[in-house]
Design a protein around this nucleic acid. Structure first.
Lengths: 255, 255
DNA sequence: CAGGATAACATGTCTAGACAGGTTGTTCAA
DNA sequence: TTGAACAACCTGTCTAGACATGTTATCCTG
């Protein structure tokens, strides 16, 4: 393997505020996503990466361990590290946002905003648990969207944001294909860290069935959960309804 | 905090073949599970643990990072590390096996073995993908079980094992409440490492509905996937049908 | 008493090594 | 030609520090 060839246009910035292992992780992720590293192909070894970027091997490992947990690569002791063979399933949930995930797979996807409204925080069990609103009566911004892949609707997502976070999405009205996560990270400069989600099977009711273009009573996945910032403050509460026939949840469990 | 009090009966064995971070992880897990560390309570700091067991702080971190990813603890920078506040949801999938998970929550749970059979490997798409059988025609052991919590059935699980692995479960016939994972790890001494699972919503057919004591057409979660050994060899292929009304899937995503 | 500086302590990131042990291919001897 | 030994390379685990940065409580000052 000649890492110089593959890594020639890549570089890390030691003075950046972005941790080195994040930079390395994203370089490898990019190489995988743009096809320079193909499924099954071997990735430069930890020693090669550590020498190439002049960083410690432990730092490289921090990057590759994360990619392994995300399911992008497979690490085999004594043998090497390889790009995970492609499967047709998809992680349902990624903090990067859904659009970029689908784009990577080569699917055109877009969203349609049904409505954006300011509402009073209400007290559903889930909302209360989420910790999103401090007191009932606080104002939240609610965004309802239908998500499409290749003209086929596959999900209805409802996001609840605190007024301070969400009002920037109201005027100008959020574009159909804008990403809420991108907005939060790039415009508001809030770094996201974690999401707690709960998923249950369910049946499509009349309204959902219409929006998703399926029969009433078809199987769906219901999701609700909270996204947290780097400072562990809840940033978004999300409810989603996903078409069961178009969608599956891939889970990789590591002991 | 006085870690000596809490950790007085715990110890690690530096000469063990079990990695130190695994030993520390399991000590903390045990303290959480037996209630000596209660939800929300602060865990001894990384420095305290590192001093207590005379190991490096990086090794302690490897343990706590894993527990964080499993959702057992919450780590807050600058503040400390805490036992995750209990929620009523449950990780669907844990390599430890399901029984111990439920037992931790104080639920009595048991299984009923429907049948154990030797079958010829067949070629469903999923089975083929799993890599479990080398060639069609190989013999597999199939175990079908219904799982109960407090006398209520909530899941039908079908396990497929290679003959070499599974035959020990046929005679004497596997006990109703035996754990396949325990058998594989403790009797066959195969260390398990990873599981790839796919989950989809579905509707209960007649047979499943009867076994699960629900109405035909009720929402269920369908699962299929493969469990891998430490040497990345597929050890088990699992198909499961979970009652939607009794079960939900908790997912913690970390960026 | 309110508010700001600060000290103590927590986790986050990183280094430059070390040795263990798994995998693969080559080399050499029977 | 076959097989065993070995070398080269890989990841797994671990150390003993370092500095950065976030949180909390306390103390001191106005």
């Amino acid at each position: 393997m000649n890492p110089g060839q593959l890594l020639q246009d890549t570089h890390i910035d030691k003075s950046s505020y972005i941790p080195l292992y994040i930079q390395v992780r994203d370089i490898l992720k990019e190489l995988i996503n743009n096809g320079k590293l193909k499924p099954g192909e071997q990735i430069p070894s930890e020693n090669e990466l550590s020498a190439e970027y002049n960083i410690s091997r432990m730092t490289v490992r921090q990057a590759s361990q994360e990619l392994m947990r995300e399911g992008l690569i497979v690490i085999r002791r004594g043998e090497g590290t390889f790009v995970h063979s492609a499967s047709h399933t998809q992680m349902l949930l990624k903090l990067e946002g859904f659009s970029s995930e689908m784009a990577k797979l080569g699917y055109r996807n877009h969203s349609r905003v049904l409505d954006i409204q300011m509402i009073e925080a209400f007290d559903s069990f889930e909302m209360a648990y989420s910790g999103l609103e401090k007191e009932p009566g606080d104002t939240l911004v609610r965004i309802r969207r239908v998500r499409y892949v290749e003209e086929t609707p596959f999900a209805i997502e409802t996001s609840f944001l605190p007024l301070a976070t969400g009002q920037g999405l109201m005027e100008p009205r959020m574009a159909d294909d804008a990403s809420i996560y991108n907005y939060i990270e790039n415009e508001l400069h809030i770094r996201l860290s974690r999401a707690d989600h709960v998923i249950q099977p369910g049946l499509a009711d009349r309204e959902s069935a219409e929006l998703l273009e399926i029969a009433k009573g078809s199987p769906v996945l219901n999701l609700h959960g909270t996204t947290f910032s780097m400072t562990n403050k809840p940033v978004e509460y999300l409810e989603g309804i996903y078409r069961g026939d178009k969608y599956e949840l891939k889970v990789v469990i590591t002991k």
